[in-house]
């Protein structure tokens, strides 16, 4: 097995990573780049915990091989906060009580960020649809939806 070098943009910075081809984007981000905010919940695209923003769209990084990320523009939760301070979406999640165990939260916030980048004033229905690929086992979703709406109101 020959190693490959993946060149992409991660959190607004160009990176190149030498990696075995049998690694997922999820592994590359967590292990090679130390971006452990990206969580592995189910390993099969069913829970959304490993969601990253990939060329502007939310995707599950457990379903992508590292090599496929060549040339991609990737944003993880580490690339959202500004100088260690929460951005408007993160702040809304904190204030709305949307965070309990927190394991789903990186994926939730990134999905919300991707929605608000495209549609800064979504309806509640659009919020629910956009967030429907992220499972939370603690909150029951209501406060998460409220958090996204709160963030949108401050956009």
């Amino acid at each position: 097995m020959n190693k490959i070098t993946v060149h992409c943009t991660v959190n607004h910075k160009p990176v190149s990573v030498e990696i075995e081809p049998n690694k997922r984007l999820l592994d590359m981000l967590r292990v090679n780049l130390g971006l452990t905010s990206v969580k592995e919940g189910c390993s099969e695209g069913e829970c959304g915990a490993c969601t990253v923003i990939y060329n502007g769209e939310p995707v599950t990084s457990c379903c992508i091989l590292a090599g496929q990320a060549e040339g991609a523009d990737i944003i993880t939760l580490e690339g959202v906060s500004v100088d260690g301070k929460p951005d408007v979406v993160q702040q809304a999640f904190i204030e709305s009580g949307a965070i309990q165990c927190g394991f789903c939260i990186p994926g939730m916030i990134l999905t919300a960020e991707a929605l608000l980048m495209k549609n800064p004033h979504p309806t509640m229905e659009q919020i629910k649809e956009a967030m429907s690929g992220n499972l939370c086992r603690c909150t029951g979703y209501k406060k998460i939806e409220e958090a996204v709406a709160l963030a949108a109101s401050r956009m």
Binding site: T36, E95, I99, G102
Partner: peptide, 14 residues
Amino acid sequence: PKVDALERALGTAK
């Protein structure tokens, strides 16, 4: 606010 909500929102909670 929940005590450690900030770290969980920033993704720095381990």
